[in-house]
Design a protein around this nucleic acid. Structure first.
Lengths: 338, 338
DNA sequence: GCAGCGCTGGAAAGCGCTTTCCCGCCACGC
DNA sequence: GCGTGGCGGGAAAGCGCTTTCCAGCGCTGC
């Protein structure tokens, strides 16, 4: 059944030109080809339904049209927004996006990078947040080096210190600003549902939040760590309630965790914001439809994906560039006065 | 800077064996290689940090390790769940997923398929819902033929009639069952927020719903069409309210649309479910955290992605296989008695 | 004792494309 | 008239693999 694929050679032969000419016509090389031949080749290619073999091109050119995108979990709105931004830019550039999911396993990130290297991906965007685990970090760094030495570019979202281009959201500043605004609402006792202790993003947001409370002269918050997921937030919130803390306002370091936390509060009959105010971080799109609407720090997620893709596709110098994007505090119904 | 990539030839030379032997060792061909040589090659490859060039392999083998995944919008939970299922299966099979997004433009789907063909993708999962637009359909069909003739496999989620393997959710049956249960709650006047009139999925769900109402002896619903998105649901709901319809229960053909509709009702001060009951379809994960919890027809989205990937990766016969997955009506707080 | 077989290793022919290099041609300038 | 360039076209050498085909070798079976 499987009909042979049309090759460049067939097109060339049919059009009565050499392989070289056909190649030049169909790929806009620097070389000129006469109008007549050019036209003939184009027509024949069209007739035969010629589609260039990307593998062969990649091999001959020693560079492919693949762009890698590595996320922890594509169902997490944070990542899917970034993914949307990345794919938009990549597709506009005529490139193809390879999606890899790590399931939050650092070693999987290294594997994926290696696979992408095997495919001679032209670039890769690492959107997963980094841990502070030294060993994992150094393996990743080694793999990144291998990748860049081979000529590929790497950009990270939300994580510097890897010597790559990076788009960094104002995690610390955002946390700080949020804390101040919440303090201004009159809250005196705070709790934070932090992510895993070794996650840089979580730590930064927490650190910023603490700083903001300090600015406002409010006592440091009770911190409860949990998984960086909706269920992590749910569990952490339960733990908070069990702790008999007197907190009147809780900050979940991600919106997704905040959603879980709200579910827990609701189940336990804790009213938001009357009994407890709650705020998140990221402003994922699904927040539009929660009740009460969640206060948060807005990050332009899709745009961050676009920026990352832009960085990684634009040749750039040798310097690792860093683009900062600011978070904007958005107070909604989930936070009330105290 | 860009250090040359280690090639198989280098490994072979360093290990003192032929290219053929090295290749055989590093890829588990059918051929046996002596323990000693095998060991030596493996060690050298390890030392040199050899990573096979996937393009070259693809070219030589005439088949790549790419699997395409085409969705309309990766930020839509419906698609991201399916994507999660597909990537899981593909990654387990040692394949790499290429993500393409169409932005709901049919011609983009054709383009993507062509690109995937150029890359000699081994298979592709089409997750976007089909339209009834004849022209678009036939171009797509042609592209699918070209793809399969070249040896690739294609599976569709939620759409038959293309001669490919398919995973079909019980759209009609689900809509019907839902309608009956809602009717059983005592509602007499229904409205449906249908998707675009030419979307097969939307039509099927609507048709099923109508059939269910008929079963229950209830009058046909008022149907309002709108975009297949959250905002489409929002707009449609506003239109419904403006219509002065006496409906007490509204069915949005998608959870995402239902979310938008709930937002509209909330804004207009229409209480759910006291003033209006509402139900959706799909059971996307974000539903867990809406208030009131949305009644819906549960579809195992991730599993559907897994099944589709399974179909497409498993050689199978020439027959187009169809796997049906049933929807399960889940009544929650958004629907009340009347 | 030898044809024949099974098995392992290597040489080499591709896979489909890009790109270098060379050749012939023409327009020019002296 | 002839050397010089510039330019369009083609031959062919790869790109890094896989796989066929062949050579050699130690065995088995008659």
């Amino acid at each position: 059944m499987s009909a042979r694929q049309v090759t460049l050679a067939e097109v060339a032969k049919q059009a009565g030109v050499s392989l070289a000419t056909a190649s030049r016509v169909l790929n806009g090389s620097t070389r000129q080809v006469s109008e007549e031949l050019s036209e003939r080749v184009l027509r024949t290619a069209e007739e035969l339904g010629y589609v260039p073999n990307a593998s062969a091109q990649a091999l001959a050119r020693n560079s492919s049209s693949l762009v890698g995108l590595v996320v922890h979990d594509i169902t997490d709105p944070y990542f899917s927004c970034i993914a949307a931004g990345v794919t938009r830019v990549a597709e506009e550039a005529g490139l193809v996006v390879v999606l890899g999911t790590t399931g939050r396993r650092p070693e999987r990130e290294v594997e994926l990078l290696s696979t992408l290297r095997a495919h001679r991906a032209r670039a890769v965007v690492l959107a997963g947040s980094r841990t502070t685990d030294r060993a994992a970090q150094s393996r990743l760094a080694a793999e990144i080096d291998a990748f860049t030495e081979q000529g590929g570019r790497v950009a990270c979202v939300s994580q510097a210190k890897l010597g790559t281009d990076t788009v960094v959201p104002g995690n610390r500043a955002g946390g700080r600003a949020l804390a101040r605004e919440l303090a201004a609402l009159g809250h005196k006792k705070f709790a934070v549902l932090g992510g895993p202790a070794d996650l840089v993003v979580a730590r930064d947001r927490l650190a910023g939040f603490k700083a903001g409370l300090a600015d406002a002269g409010v006592a440091p918050p009770l911190v409860i760590n949990g998984a960086f997921t909706r269920d992590g937030g749910y569990e952490a919130a339960l733990e908070l309630l069990a702790s008999k803390s007197r907190a009147t306002c809780v900050f979940a370091v991600t919106d997704v965790m905040a959603m879980g936390a709200m579910a827990a509060l609701r189940e336990r009959g804790v009213r938001v914001p009357e009994d407890m105010s709650i705020a998140g971080f990221d402003d994922i799109p699904t927040l539009r439809d929660t009740v009460p609407a969640l206060s948060t720090v807005r990050l332009p997620l899709e745009e961050m994906g676009e920026i990352a893709a832009g960085l990684v596709l634009d040749a750039g110098g040798d310097e690792a560039r860093t683009v900062r994007v600011a978070g904007e505090v958005v107070l909604r119904a989930s936070t009330g006065h105290n």
